[in-house]
Computed example of a mutant assay.
Amino acid sequence: MQGQAQQQAYDRGITIFSPDGRLYQVEYAREAVKRGSASIGVRADDGVVLVVDKRIRSPLMEETSVEKIHKADNHIGIASAGHVADARQLIDFARRDSQVNRVRYDEPIGVESLTKDITDHIQQYTQVGGARPFGVALLIGGIEDGEPRLYETDPSGTPNEWKALAIGSGRDDIQQYLEDEYSEDVALEDAVGLALSGLGQVHDEGLTPEGIGVATVDAESGSFIELTNDEIEEYLVANDLLADEEDEEDDADDEQAE
Rank of each mutant, 00 (worst) to 15 (best):
Asp154Ile: 04
Gln176Ile: 11
Asp180Thr: 12
Asp190Met: 11
Glu112Asp: 09
Thr115Pro: 07
Asn160Lys: 09
Ser197Ala: 13
Gly198Glu: 06
Glu205Tyr: 13
Leu236Val: 11
Tyr125Trp: 08
His203Cys: 07
Tyr151Lys: 01
Tyr235Cys: 11
Val202Gln: 05
Asp97Leu: 05
Ser98Cys: 05
Thr158His: 07
Glu179Gly: 06
Gln127Tyr: 08
Glu161Tyr: 01
Ile232Ala: 09
Ser169Phe: 05
Asp172Met: 09
Ile212Phe: 08
Thr208Lys: 10
Leu178Glu: 03
Glu234Ser: 14
Val202Met: 03
Gly200Gln: 07
Val136Pro: 06
Asp145Phe: 01
Ile143Phe: 03
Glu161Arg: 08
Ser113Ile: 01
Ala195Asn: 05
Pro148Leu: 03
Ile174Ser: 08
Thr208Leu: 13
Ile118Gly: 05
Val103Leu: 15
Tyr182Trp: 12
Ile232Trp: 08
Leu227Gly: 10
Ile140Glu: 00
Glu189Asn: 14
His203Pro: 04
Asp117Pro: 00
Ser223Glu: 14
Thr208Pro: 04
Asp117Asn: 13
Ile109Thr: 02
Asn101Gly: 00
Gln176Gly: 14
Glu226His: 11
Gly146Ile: 01
Gln99Ser: 11
Pro159Ile: 01
Val214Thr: 10
Lys163Cys: 06
Arg102His: 11
Gly146Gln: 04
Ile225His: 15
Leu199Thr: 08
Gly157Ala: 06
Leu165Asp: 00
Asp120Gln: 11
Gln127Gly: 09
Val214Trp: 07
Ile167Met: 00
Leu138Thr: 02
Gly198Asp: 05
Gly213Asn: 11
Leu207Asp: 04
Glu220Gly: 15
Tyr177Asn: 10
